[in-house]
């Protein structure tokens, strides 16, 4: 674990899928901590080995809060102009926002 980061608002954003179709509902989960929260970054290392001895490594980093966070107001916009609704915000770490994906804006005409 690294040394605690300086005070800052921290956001982690994840979508429920990497790809969607027009008309799908997208869920955006935002994990946050406010500037008064002491946080550290923990790196997780995973090694997988198959029967032939081939190995693969992957790492992931997660944030570890060492003190409680206050609420963070979260706003989400996207490049299609969709409207996001906050379905929940627990006031300490997580905001969940959803929207229905509309049609992409028409490309600008070529000059």
């Amino acid at each position: 674990m690294t040394t605690p980061a300086p005070a800052a608002v921290t956001l982690n954003v994840a979508t429920d899928k990497p790809a969607y179709n027009v008309g799908d509902t997208i869920t955006v989960t935002v994990t946050y901590s406010d500037a008064n929260t002491t946080t550290s970054t923990m790196t997780i290392t995973v090694t997988g080995t198959d029967g032939a001895g081939n190995t693969a490594n992957a790492t992931a980093q997660v944030q570890v809060n060492q003190s409680a966070s206050g609420p963070v107001t979260v706003a989400v916009t996207d490049s299609f102009g969709d409207t996001y609704t906050e379905t929940s915000n627990d006031g300490t770490s997580t905001s969940v926002q959803t929207a229905v994906i509309g049609t992409p804006p028409a490309p600008a005409p070529a000059a």
């Binding site: 800052a8 990497p18 935002v30 406010d34 996207d78 490049s79 299609f80 992409p104």
Partner: peptide
């Protein structure tokens, strides 16, 4: 590509932003 911009503001007015992109296809 759909670009999603997220802004978070805490009680002291500190702000952070994040951006994530996903793919969108036809229905």
């Amino acid at each position: 590509i759909l670009q999603i911009d997220v802004t978070g503001t805490d009680a002291d007015g500190n702000v952070a932003t994040a951006t994530v992109e996903v793919e969108v296809g036809a229905p």
